[in-house]
Design a protein around this nucleic acid. Structure first.
Lengths: 197, 197
DNA sequence: CCTACCGATCGGTAGG
DNA sequence: CCTACCGATCGGTAGG
């Protein structure tokens, strides 16, 4: 009995995982349920014993990722660290998520437009909220003179998108290690490209 | 006679322009030729008097953008400026292209995966080549001690993706001016977030 | 530039 | 989990 439940749960997990990989590679709209079924190793109709619809798969992926980032943001917000350190920690969390949970984070970032209502509005609201919190940490840092006097929303925008560049790193051949990548990204974002001699 | 030619050319231009806007908004795969036709104001079948296929539209968009960036790169490469200034100029070019030629640049960046062969391979090769040239300018700057000792490919990756963040700026309401955006982005990328007191 | 239409494929359901 | 199948929609063509 417990075995059956576990088996079913893991089959759904398998479907979500394969779907994330295919949505990342070809895009949500260009991935057919028949393609997905073949990858999973069953007939297309059988997918519907595990999931209700194609869109439900996307919802599961997007909101899993959103929850994980929101939880991390709450922990960071409430800590007593300096603003610049908070930002570094957020940055490192983004980088690690992008490295370790690549397919899902990528899909959640690029394919959320295909969500149906009311999930679409909900997701967009969470996104706006997350960025607002991020920007206000930066603003606190500016007030406390830890951070350069820049436009905070622009900085958030740069940071979030810069991290999504790991996409290219992820599939390149001759590449540096994950740790080196992380340190390089942090150094460039925090201290910039220019060398002060 | 000349009038007819001009008229036809401009109708094709209109189709490409509307297509870019729709591909950006909904994605290439999720945009149907019937949607596009309606936006243009004709029947779907009539589109084929101006273009050969849906994929030909994407090819036109992607290679127009690629040509423009390649031309700018050649001009920058051959100049005698300092490396850090070359990078700043490339960065400013990217930002301006993203602001002024938003739909096309965005589509070329996110939807090129849907190109058919041999265009797909051709486009990917141009992309790799562009990044290689960008990285080698950074490496020259490191050698000349103008730039921090970072992994050059990682820096390219960050810069290119950071700029694509302008997507969010482009559609937000309360936003700073294009010039302020550009200066903020350049400052953050060149000198970083941290303030040195 | 339109009407009429093609074969292919889509997401999903019925019934077992 | 499968076979059989649904209506809808897709990119594209024929012919005028």
């Amino acid at each position: 009995m417990a075995k059956t439940v576990r088996k079913r749960a893991s089959k759904k997990e398998l479907i979500l995982q394969k779907a994330a990989a295919m949505f990342r590679e070809k895009g949500f709209a260009a991935t057919s349920m028949r393609d997905l079924a073949e990858t999973v190793g069953i007939e297309a109709a059988s997918l519907y014993n595990h999931i209700r619809s194609k869109n439900e798969i996307l919802e599961a992926i997007c909101f899993d990722v959103a929850n994980s980032f929101n939880a991390n943001m709450e922990g960071t917000e409430s800590s007593n660290e300096k603003s610049i350190l908070k930002i570094e920690k957020l940055l490192r969390f983004h980088i690690r998520q992008m490295i370790e949970n690549y397919e899902e984070v990528y899909v959640s970032d690029r394919e959320w437009k295909h969500l149906d209502e009311p999930y679409l509005s909900n997701f967009q609201a969470q996104r706006r909220n997350y960025r607002k919190k991020f920007a206000s940490i930066i603003e606190q840092g500016i007030v406390k003179n830890e951070i350069r006097n820049i436009d905070a929303p622009t900085a958030v925008l740069i940071i979030l998108h810069a991290v999504s560049g790991i996409e290219s790193w992820h599939r390149s051949r001759a590449r540096i290690s994950a740790g080196e990548l992380e340190d390089n990204m942090v150094m460039i974002m925090i201290d910039g490209l220019r060398k002060h001699s």
